[in-house]
């Protein structure tokens, strides 16, 4: 069943099925791109509503709906980051951790900062590859790059993070 098509025709059940199937990975992606829960939720909402618009360019023969939705989330996140001029970085929020988890929370904040400091395309590629376990060919479609370019950006992102997060490797060992 072509859910986006049914949703566009007004089928609420199809629309909600699409939402239920995809909203959580899309939210994770948006959150890790923007660093803001509120922005991520707005982006996810906007992403599903965009599927309903007459000018929506989604074509089920050209791409999976998941790939298309991830592409929208990326574009929307980019727009917000440009508008906020990197404000997302400071808005990465973490709830207070209980004693004993302080180190973990610190590490979490450091990872978030390091990932968010990556250049935008490297960041998107790394998040999709590492956190979403998306195949490289699909990542290439989401970010609009050739497969080779995706591989090189992923490698650069990993190398950059290894440098930035090197000091935490020993902390992680200590936590275990």
């Amino acid at each position: 069943m072509d859910l986006p098509r049914a949703a566009r025709k007004g089928d609420e059940a199809a629309f909600l099925q699409l939402f239920d199937e995809h909203h959580w990975p899309l939210f994770r992606f948006a959150y890790r791109l923007t660093g803001s829960r509120a922005d991520a939720e707005d982006i996810v909402q906007e992403c599903f509503l965009q599927l309903l618009r007459p000018e929506c360019s989604y074509n089920s023969r050209r791409a999976e709906v998941r790939t298309y939705l991830f592409g929208i989330v990326r574009n929307q996140s980019l727009k917000r980051l440009r508008r906020n001029d990197g404000a997302g970085l400071s808005s990465v929020g973490f709830s207070p951790s209980p004693e004993g988890q302080v180190l973990r929370a610190e590490l979490e904040a450091a990872v978030a900062r390091a990932v968010m400091q990556l250049p935008e395309t490297q960041r998107a590629v790394l998040i999709l590859a590492h956190y979403e376990q998306m195949p490289l060919a699909e990542i290439a479609k989401v970010v609009g790059l050739e497969l080779g370019a995706v591989k090189s950006r992923l490698q650069r992102a990993r190398n950059g993070l290894k440098e930035k997060l090197a000091i935490y490797a020993t902390d992680l060992e200590r936590q275990r």
Partner: peptide
């Protein structure tokens, strides 16, 4: 740092849950 260590460190970054109202809001806007 090797690839496995980087993977373990990156996994430390969790994502908060979505608010319960997200589904309702999307449904209302639909």
């Amino acid at each position: 740092m090797n690839d496995q260590e980087l993977k373990d460190i990156l996994d430390a970054w969790d994502v908060p849950p979505v608010t319960g109202s997200l589904r309702q809001n999307v449904r209302a806007r639909f």
